[in-house]
Every structure is written in C-alpha cells, then in structure tokens.
C-alpha cells in the first residue's frame, strides 16, 4: 500500500502514530495476504455444518490503510494548544491540521477558515506529495449517517482548499464516521474535539 511509506508530518502522527507507522506487518508495500484472510463458513457439501476452514479467498488485496488507524488514548499535545496559539505561533512553521465542526454540521466556521487558509498556503509553499482530508464525527447518531457526515465534512474542507489554489486531484478524501475518535470520552468536551476534519500531509 503506497501510503505506508509516507512521511506523515502531522504533529498528532509524530506523537502517537509513530509506532503504528513502523509496524512491519505486511512489509513496506503492504502487499501481503494476511490482511485479507477469509474463512469458509458453510461447508459446501450441503451438510450445513458451521465450521472453519473453507477456501481462502479473494483477490490479492493490499494491506491495511496506515493513515489514521492508530489508537489515541489521550488528548495529543498539539490539542492542548489552542488553534489561535498554534496559528499565531507558527511564524512560517506548519499550521495546525485539525478543524472542528458543530453538531450535525459540515459548515466551515471562521476559525476553521483561518486555519485552512494557513494550511493551503503552507501546502502551496512546500508542495507535499499527497494531502488527505479525513472526516470524523462524534459518537452520537447512527453509523451510516455519521459516515456520510464525515464524508461531507472532508469534502467541504477539500472544496475550501481547492478554492485557495490547491489542485483538486491532489487532495484525497476519506470518511471514518464515528469510528476514529480523537478523544475518548462521552461528554461535550470529547464530542467537540471529535467533530473534525484532519489533514494528513505526506511529503
């Protein structure tokens, strides 16, 4: 999988996904079959037994996506700094990569706009190889709706970045719905942190 080898420069990633990114499972190109092992469930002779051990199957699929699959057990360092501080303190440095949303909303608010403008400038200046926008939701609401809402948030961020001069085809989008919370908690603080889009910038 081509993303495995990417240098993920997000502060979050550096802090907490470092171990994950270096996991040797699947090798550098991830082209192993171990991630797509399947189990035959019903014996095909019609005897109907539920037993393991049918045909291994499927086309040879790539390895798992490495992006955003780490577990984050605490609020990462970068989020203890307010967005304003991170933005203001980043004289020429890399801006904060996370923007937040209101409940059930994909509207890019003023704070998010400021941050995305900084990101767009940084990306145009540094010309990274790949930009991935991940859309995320808080844990409330249904699985399906949150998948679509995460997609919509990420798509809105992509549109905004493109409006700032980025090439449409360079920005990739993926939704995780409510599957990848940044903060584990069940209160408004955690929910507000988890309603977000994250930029993953690979050089």
């Amino acid at each position: 999988m081509k993303r495995t080898g990417l240098l993920i420069v997000s502060l979050v990633s550096l802090g907490l996904l470092a171990g994950c990114g270096s996991t040797p499972k699947g090798g550098p190109d991830g082209a192993t079959g171990t991630e797509s092992t399947t189990t035959g469930v019903f014996t095909g002779d019609g005897s109907g037994g539920v037993g393991a051990g049918g045909a291994l199957g499927g086309p040879a699929l790539g390895g798992p996506p490495r992006v955003g699959s780490g577990s984050l057990d605490q609020v990462p360092m970068s989020h203890r700094i307010s967005n304003m501080d991170a933005a203001g303190g980043a004289a020429g440095g890399e801006p904060e990569h996370i923007v937040h949303f209101d409940f059930n909303s994909s509207l890019i608010n003023d704070e998010a706009s400021r941050l995305l403008i900084q990101n767009a400038r940084w990306i145009l200046a540094h010309n990274p190889r790949e930009v991935i926008v991940e859309g995320h939701c808080d844990e409330r609401g249904t699985r399906d709706y949150n998948l679509a809402l995460g997609q919509k948030r990420a798509d809105e961020v992509k549109k905004f970045l493109v409006s700032q001069g980025l090439d449409w085809y360079r920005v990739k989008v993926i939704t995780y719905g409510k599957e990848r919370p940044l903060v584990f908690g069940h209160d408004e603080f955690a929910w507000a942190k988890n309603r977000r889009a994250e930029l993953r910038i690979a050089q």
Partner: peptide, 27 residues
C-alpha cells in the same frame, strides 16, 4: 477499509470468496 476509503464487499459464506462491489469515488 482495506482499500483505503470504505468500499462494499460481498462475502460468500459457503466458499469464503470475497468480491469488491464497485469502487466509486468517495463514500
């Protein structure tokens, strides 16, 4: 999510064979 973004797969429980059901841009 094995291809990166979420995709629909079909799993034949008899044989264990799997197929990806389409690969459309986005969700």
């Amino acid at each position: 999510y094995e291809k990166g973004p979420p995709r629909i797969f079909r799993w034949d429980l008899y044989t264990g064979r799997r197929f990806m059901e389409g690969d459309h841009q986005g969700l």
